[in-house]
């Protein structure tokens, strides 16, 4: 299986990457003209252009705004849950359905091995092309998706298997059927069950952490977050249209909402930031996998050393610590 590298697949460029895209065009034009006129030495010029491009990429990615980061988090070439499962897990068997109503393709889950250790892995799944996007409902789960996850949490607990969740969703699906079948209850139940589940849970935000729809896979013992992922109570667009009455203020909303890994780490809501390859995970998927594999392994080893009681006490304390407020002296 070939993995995408900066050199072998066409990258689609984001709006703020246009100058990098232009350099790429010049590089490609030079390569083509070289192919047509054999014997011309272009190595020096090519080298210069590539260096310039790399420098520009570095400069751009050093100063990304929160809004730009959320574009990277949603990049259509970014690795999705099934890519991580394929690269990081072996012997994966996907398990379908909630045993009550349906199988929701917006969440995938199953049994696999990570570094030889049997684990249950569950994640949101987005689609790559138009057809698959529709099939995966853009990664927006319905209640049966959360109930499938719940069933797999319980199975993991029963056989004492660690759980790894991969979070990447715009949010739970706001649809008529989803409401009729109890979207709220499905999410709430997962929060409740995960809080007292007797097995280690590690979460990784790989792309978009969209509100309650993300949190239903996010009550964990250790939360990792990719450098250019986002995690937010509401999408920047949603927040902007409510508070600014205009979705065009999304960049401002993204900034003030504190949705990026560094700000969330500072708030104590994320444990580990997973650094991404220069220019984002999609530019060097194998490097991304390598980095995440190591960090996941460290956390899994650390959590497996704890007995169940220690694990649950620490998880509860962690949940209770969420929140920032002041306490005045009671009168």
């Amino acid at each position: 299986m070939s993995l995408r590298r900066a050199t072998d697949t066409k990258i689609s460029y984001l709006d703020f990457e246009q100058s990098i895209a232009e350099l790429q065009q010049r590089i490609e034009a030079l390569q083509i003209s070289h192919d047509e006129h054999d014997g011309l030495d272009i190595s020096k010029e090519l080298d210069q252009l590539e260096k310039k491009q790399k420098k520009l990429l570095q400069e751009t990615y050093q100063n990304l705004s929160a809004w730009q980061i959320s574009q990277v988090a949603r990049h259509s070439q970014r690795p999705y849950t099934l890519d991580y499962i394929r690269e990081l897990f072996t012997d994966f068997e996907e398990l379908h359905g909630d045993r009550a109503y349906a199988d929701d393709p917006a969440i995938v889950g199953g049994l696999g091995r990570f570094e030889g250790v049997p684990v249950v892995v569950i994640g949101h799944q987005k689609g790559r092309d138009v057809k698959e996007r529709q099939y995966r409902n853009f990664g927006m789960p319905r209640p049966e998706g959360y109930r499938k996850a719940l069933r797999l949490y319980r199975m993991a607990e029963k056989f004492n298997l660690p759980i790894i969740t991969l979070i990447d969703t715009p949010g739970a699906y706001p649809g008529i059927g989803a409401e009729e079948r109890g979207q709220s209850e499905a999410i709430a139940k997962n929060l409740y069950v995960m809080a007292e589940l007797k097995t280690p849970i590690i979460g990784v935000i790989i792309g978009e952490g969209g509100s309650g729809g993300a949190l239903a896979l996010g009550v964990v013992d250790h939360l990792l977050m990719l450098q250019y992922a986002t995690y937010s109570v509401i999408s920047p667009e949603g927040c902007a249209s409510i508070l600014w009455k205009s979705a065009s203020k999304a960049p401002e909303a993204a900034e003030t909402l504190a949705i990026t890994a560094d700000r969330l780490k500072a708030l104590g809501l994320v444990d580990t930031i997973v650094s991404e390859p220069l220019g984002g995970a999609h530019r060097d998927i194998s490097l991304m996998m390598q980095t995440l594999r190591k960090l996941l392994k460290d956390q899994l080893v650390a959590l497996q050393k704890k007995d169940t009681e220690q694990l649950l006490t620490a998880r509860y304390a962690r949940l209770m610590s969420y929140g920032k407020f002041k306490e005045t002296t009671p009168k």
Binding site: A188, G212, L215, G323
Partner: peptide, 20 residues
């Protein structure tokens, strides 16, 4: 919204409290 992700985490916190 004005408390960002801290407010989302209250969903997890309150649900966890109910387990006790």
């Amino acid at each position: 919204m004005q408390e960002g992700l801290l407010s989302l985490m209250q969903m997890a916190k309150t649900s966890a409290a109910l387990t006790k």
